[in-house]
Structure formats: structure tokens, C-alpha cells
Write a protein that binds this DNA or RNA. Structure first.
Ligand SMILES: [Mn+2]
Ligand SMILES: [Mn+2]
Ligand SMILES: [Mn+2]
Ligand SMILES: [Mn+2]
Lengths: 218, 218
DNA sequence: TTATTAATTTTGGCATACCTAATTTATTTT
DNA sequence: AAAATAAATTAGGTATGCCAAAATTAATAA
């Protein structure tokens, strides 16, 4: 298997398995990788042979220790590059994901560690995602999705789970950036939309948007 | 054809054809690309169909205008990255070529132009190779190989044509770095080795090394 | 100019990464 | 527990990028 293919599978399995607690299904994996389920079945069989995953037919897939190690490494590269592009090269947080998708496959630990060093070994990337350290250790936090927040509680925005330019630009337009403090006023029963205040401005957020926002109690 | 394959062919043809004046042969191209001649024959047929090259069977290959344009773009990316790695990230000139071989395929003009801007739009890379500007324009110089120099003339080292770590470390050990002034004392008839002075030290250089050093009359 | 040698191309194959359509297996609904 | 639906797998196929060995063409030496 091509190294880039392996890396994309492992990274995606990692992102879907929330810390290896959930087994990943073929259909969802196929969707994320822009492949057909049949293709993914083949791919997983090979990754299983390479001992990167435990693949149980018709059931699901988990990363092995070595698979998780590689996955964490790719995730580190991706997030370090995103951070470097934003902090050192002046890109917007909405334009770095695509570039990092390519840069993450450049294999050179010295390079990544140098970038990380220049950045002061950051723990979070521009989207609030935790950056594994050189050993693969990741800072564990107790963030929740905004869609799971409680009314009348004040939160701080810590991250996003959708990295698309469209979504990030939308957030920016409403000043819903990382670090911003928001007060959840109420949930609309009808469509689960949320009324909240941010910088003294009231705004209504769709449940879809709230699903993609990560917050922490203030 | 995969984009990366195309880029590697075009870049290599560019590097072998000295400004498109020489037609490139299959055997040499195969050697540079680490492929077999039979493979290159196929590849060139496809590139010809894509209008990136003029490929004349059993004769040789030249870049078309569009092929040259793409080639220049890859060369620019490669050399900008090499320069950035050395100047901004603290790598040695002997360790950047391999990394740049990967980074050069990351396609994002804004990124390259940003790096170039930070560097002050350099015209030469760490090995003395000219860097095409964003439009593909290259600064033309009248450098010669040290092997073609004349005795009793003083030169300045302007570049190298071998980017291997082994060669660059050898040069560094003898202070034969870019910008250094040397005086060619004499050519040894027997093996074409060169006796020269650099920083008041005498040193003998093999013809093989001299072939890979680019100089300019002082 | 005819050998001889070197470069190039052709032929036939192999492996990888995909796909669609058909089939099987698992999960929901009724 | 059937029936219906959804997910996963298998079977069969295409396109790409590579190779070795044989055949051809071009270049060089005799
Ligand atoms: Mn990203
Ligand atoms: Mn990110
Ligand atoms: Mn180089
Ligand atoms: Mn260079």
C-alpha cells in the first residue's frame, strides 16, 4: 500500500474512533475517505495484515498500538502545520486545512519538531484541536459540544469539529471565534436552535452549527 | 498520470535540458528518475499526449511551452523551500534537498509566494541555483564549472550541481562554501585534478568535484 | 561499409488502487 | 419471527505505473 494511502486511512480511523473507544464502520470511513465501501473493505484487509488495525469482518475496525502511533504522528503533523501556517505565515484559520492535508504527508520529524519549537510547542491548533507531542501524548480535556450545553450557563468557545472554509467564515462573521465567551440563553424546542449572547449581541445558532462547536464551562 | 509523476518527469527533463537547448535521452532520464528506460518510453508518450513535451521516438524529448511552465514552477517551489529551510528554519544546506523533494509537490501558490516574500524574493537557493520568479522568469548568469576554469585566475564559488549530503559536507569541511574566493593555481595533466588556494590554504580538488562546482571570475 | 555496441522500443506481465453490480450479513421494523 | 432495510462483502473489471526480456533502431568502431 502507498504510504499516503495508509496514512489517510489511519488518520481517518483515528478521527472517527474517539480515542479508540468506538469501532469504526466501513460506510462512514468510506464517506470520509471519498471512497466506496467495497474499496474500504479491501483497504482494511491490507491494513490488518500490516498490523495497523484490528479488522473484524462485518463488524468494525480499531487501531492497533502501532496504527495508533502512526495516526497520532500524522495528526501531529497536520495540526502543527495548521498552526504554523496561521501563526507564522499569516494564513486564516479557514484556509489552512486543505494545505495541511498535503503537508502532513511530508515525513521528517526534525522539520515538524522545529516548527513546533518555533511555535512554543503548542497544545492546540487554530481550530482548538489538541496537538499530540512528539511522543504521541495528547492533552486530554473535558470539552463538550455546544449542542450539549445547558441553558443559562456561560461557556468559552474552545474549538470546532468542522474545518470547512464556509463554516469557519460564518463563525468569524459572528465573532464566534476561539476564546470568545458566550452565554447560552435558551434552546428552541422546535428545531434545537440555540439563542445565545456573544459580546452583548444576541444570535441564533442552528443545531447543525452547534454540533460543530466545542465549548467549556466558564 | 499522477500529478507527482508528471512533476518529477518535467522537472527532471528541465534540469537535463539546460534551458531547452538540448534534447533529453531516455537512458539518462531513466537514471535520474530511478526508473527503467522501458518505463520512461511509456511515460514520455503520455506526457506528449498531454502536450507537456515533444517526444520524438528514438531521438529525444524537449519541453513544450506549457511543460516548461510547469517545470519552472516545480523548480521554484523546490528552491524556495530549500532556501526557507536553511534561512528560516536553521537546516544545513546538505540536508534540505531531500525534504524539498517532497515539499515541492505541495501545490499552493499563495504559500510559496508567502515564503518567498519572507525571504525577500531570493534569486539564488542555498546551492547557488537560480530561483524562477512567480512568472517563471529566471535570472540568467554567466557562471562556469570550476572544471572549465583557467589557471592563475581568481574565482568566486557561486553554486554546486550535486546536492548530495556527502558532497556538500566535503565542501564545507574545506571551507569551499558559496561566496568563497578561490585562486586556481594549476591543472594536473594526469587526472585533471586542480590545485587551488582558498583562504590561504592550498587544496587539491578532483576533477569529479570540480565538475560539480559553479564559479564566476572575480 | 559492415560489424559491434549502445540506446530505445515493444511485448507481455504484475501489483495497486480504485470502481459497479450482485450477493451476503446484520439491523430494524412490523 | 418475518419482512424490510441498511451495511458490508465478493466477484469481476478498469486504469495506472512499474518491470524484464526480446526486438528494433541508432551510433560507433573496425
Ligand atoms: Mn484540519
Ligand atoms: Mn485543525
Ligand atoms: Mn535540491
Ligand atoms: Mn538547490
Amino acid at each position: 500500500m502507498r504510504q499516503e494511502t495508509i496514512e489517510n486511512y489511519l488518520k481517518t480511523i483515528y478521527n472517527l474512533s474517539s480515542d479508540n473507544t468506538v469501532v469504526v464502520g466501513n460506510k462512514e470511513l468510506a464517506g470520509r475517505l471519498n471512497l466506496r465501501p467495497a474499496t474500504v473493505t479491501e483497504g482494511l484487509r491490507k491494513l490488518d495484515e500490516l498490523k495497523y488495525v484490528f479488522y473484524e469482518k462485518s463488524y468494525g475496525t480499531r487501531l492497533t498500538t502501532s496504527g495508533a502511533k502512526l495516526a497520532l504522528n500524522i495528526v501531529r503533523r497536520h495540526r502543527i502545520w495548521e498552526t504554523y501556517l496561521v501563526k507564522e505565515l499569516g494564513f486564516g484559520w479557514d484556509e489552512v486545512h486543505e494545505i495541511a492535508e498535503e503537508l502532513e504527508h511530508v515525513k521528517n520529524d526534525k522539520l515538524i519538531n522545529k516548527l513546533a519549537g518555533i511555535l512554543g510547542n503548542p497544545i492546540y491548533d487554530p481550530h482548538g484541536d489538541p496537538i499530540p507531542d512528539a511522543k504521541g501524548k495528547i492533552f486530554k480535556s473535558n470539552f463538550i459540544k455546544l449542542s450539549e450545553a445547558k441553558p443559562k450557563v456561560s461557556y468559552k468557545i474552545m474549538g470546532v469539529t468542522d474545518h470547512s472554509s464556509a463554516f469557519l467564515k460564518y463563525l468569524e462573521k459572528h465573532h464566534l471565534i476561539i476564546g470568545a465567551n458566550i452565554l447560552v440563553k435558551q434552546f428552541e424546542e422546535f428545531d434545537s436552535s440555540i439563542l445565545l449572547t456573544c459580546n452583548k449581541n444576541e444570535i441564533i445558532i442552528s443545531s447543525k452549527a452547534a454540533e460543530c462547536m466545542i465549548v467549556q464551562v466558564n
